[in-house]
Write a protein that binds this DNA or RNA. Structure first.
Lengths: 216, 216, 216, 216
DNA sequence: TGTTAAACGAGACGGTACGTCACGTCTTCGC
DNA sequence: GCGAAGACGTGACGTACCGTCTCGTTTAACA
């Protein structure tokens, strides 16, 4: 889903170059000034665009930053490493790496904060950012089940509940480590976190083949 | 640590009632208007106080909200329930309950977002909010070790690393569930989360008495 | 003289209906919104015409309003009533009637105000509006002289100076009454004004036949 | 009557210097840029004042310019020259001199134009500018009657009507000469105009002593 | 019991960004 | 190839808060 205000059908079409320039300028401004220091006038200037052009396409600062930050997470993908542990470590490390970038730090928490009082914004964040990552959890589990590392789901409702739980644990832990504790989620941390998670998964399911779920 | 600006020794003393009124007004404004809608002028009006009075005591919006939110977490305490699982469930549920209050939702994420670009603010948040919870992790572990549910720590450095990891996982997961997924962290969720966590703990330590670490 | 931008010789000819529609829309907008509330975009919409079309024909708001207002004065003409007093009363009353229309009120003073800093505009106003009225003064005097109500001019320079003075007095007085004092220049006022003017004219010339210059 | 927004009784008092600086800056901007080029932001900058300060005291551009222009007419006064003609010539010449100043040219017509659609503004102009001049007509007539140059008034309603007429003729003629015809109302023009006016006055009243009403 | 020094309310102050509006120009497409 | 539709850069608008300041007015501790 897009946060952008839809364009008209007739008349002069919108400049296609402007969109990319604006989002890049938004990220640059986030890095330099942070969320509260970011002004739409400044973003427009950086993008070489008039302030009005910006308001024609986005409703406000929140919507703009959601789109700018969402693009950062587009590169996230699930590596097929051959084992559940390696898959988790890979994607968690990717996620942590993106989160460590200053434009993500400044922008993500801020729009999440705003979304606490703005349901439309929360929906937009969910569509643009959150649910793209939840997909990784589902794929990873399916692969692990195919490999026999995890037992197949029996009840679809339980399956969804578990996926949500795993997602909250993974995303929440990484975000907390990176943005609240403000310490690097480096390879060592990711390994320890993954070991904890897989230990919990094995303990709360009936592993068909316990040997396959050992961390490498 | 306090965010308040220290008062002078001589002259008319500060009104003691004003502080409480201001913090209460701040929370009320957070509930009604959210972070970005909250203005210090409005807080002053709600508190029946002049704007100047407010600026004499706090440096700005960030510091004020940190104090206002920090008070919410003062009531958090570790219940002594007799088992690690029950202790965890108890404190996680308390934490989730506090986080579900709108003044916490609006305020906490916002000051965390601001702190991404403001180290002094991050330090203040750490002192006023975060580290008070970390204490609970240390106490809970000590109790579990005394009960024999967890093995004693051998290396103090490893002990600290593990405590940090547990803390990031617990706090991050609950925050993500409550503020990002925006779903209630009710008793059932807390149970499933606790089971996952204890399973992970048991798998990554050398349990002295495996029987004691079973979830109830 | 026209304020319109001349059209090209080749290509598709301009719509003749559009001009009238635009000027009528301009007057309608003047009535509803006044000068400062009038926008060219709104005029274009009212006229069912694109903004571009409007800019192809007039250089800007000032020029457009000059043309729109000038049309109002096209109907002014000197009645041949048989006496100087009746002629003056007739034309003054016509003038006052036109000035009382809201599109004239709003538009005329505004373009005059703009012309204080814009010599080209002043020239345009003079050509389109002012000098058409000055003609009435010259004609009226010629008729009165033919009738013997006024002595013939001896010095052409003095004649021109006197015509200018009369014109300033007539036009200025009516405009002031209508637009500044904001009271109706009704028949009674016109009569009193005309009596004053003719009294002055007789006193400052050497009347050949004083009896003929009595107000009716 | 003042166009200024009234100040509060309590709190920090308004800077007294700012008012004068703002009005002077307004006149300077009128001279340089004219009415339509004048912006409140520019006036504020010239006055060394924040834009908000300006909006705290005046409701808008119209009100500000009315006050700025009104000050120009404060110096107008009726000279006691010993004869009606000399009195009229004196005050008309003063009036024409003020009107010839570019800040008056630009400002006066513009606010009159705006007042065509804004009754409150018209009232403000009447109070601040117009009625101060009407006083001169009344004083001049009273003096002329005391000297025996004009007959005393019998009907107060007629007296008022006549004063209004004279005022419209005097003010309107000078304004038209200066701002519409855009020619200087110099001493020669003032003399010719005064002769015309006094001739009219004598013709439309019953002079008690015709000899006294001769122009000097 | 005064003195006194600071806190207090009120609100003006210089700033800065806001989000909107109209300007006058341009670019595209349809008739 | 005109004209409608509308995006574009520009710049002023009037508003809202910011954080500071300047007042006159309490108010409590100290002399």
């Amino acid at each position: 889903m897009q946060s952008r205000i839809p364009a008209s059908r007739t008349g002069r079409p919108r400049s296609v170059a402007a969109d990319a320039a604006i989002l890049a300028a938004t990220r640059a401004a986030l890095v330099e000034l942070g969320w509260s220091g970011l002004t739409l006038g400044d973003v427009a200037t950086r993008a070489g665009v008039a302030k009005t052009t910006l308001y024609r396409r986005w409703a406000g600062k929140n919507e703009l930053v959601v789109d700018a930050v969402a693009e950062l997470f587009d590169e996230l993908e699930l590596p097929d490493s051959g084992s559940l542990a390696a898959d988790i470590e890979g994607v968690v490390f990717q996620f942590a790496t993106i989160l460590a970038r200053p434009e993500a730090k400044s922008g993500l928490m801020a729009v999440l904060a705003e979304s606490q009082c703005d349901d439309a914004l929360r929906e937009r964040i969910r569509d643009s950012i959150v649910n793209r990552q939840k997909r990784l959890v589902l794929e990873g589990r399916a692969r692990a089940q195919a490999r026999g590392e995890l037992p197949p789901e029996t009840d679809p409702e339980t399956a969804a509940r578990n996926a949500d739980l795993i997602f909250d644990v993974v995303a929440g832990s990484v975000v907390h480590r990176t943005l609240v504790s403000a310490e690097q989620a480096d390879a060592a941390w990711v390994q320890r976190f993954t070991a904890l998670l897989i230990g919990g998964l094995n303990a709360t399911t009936q592993p068909t083949d316990p040997a396959a779920s050992q961390a490498p």
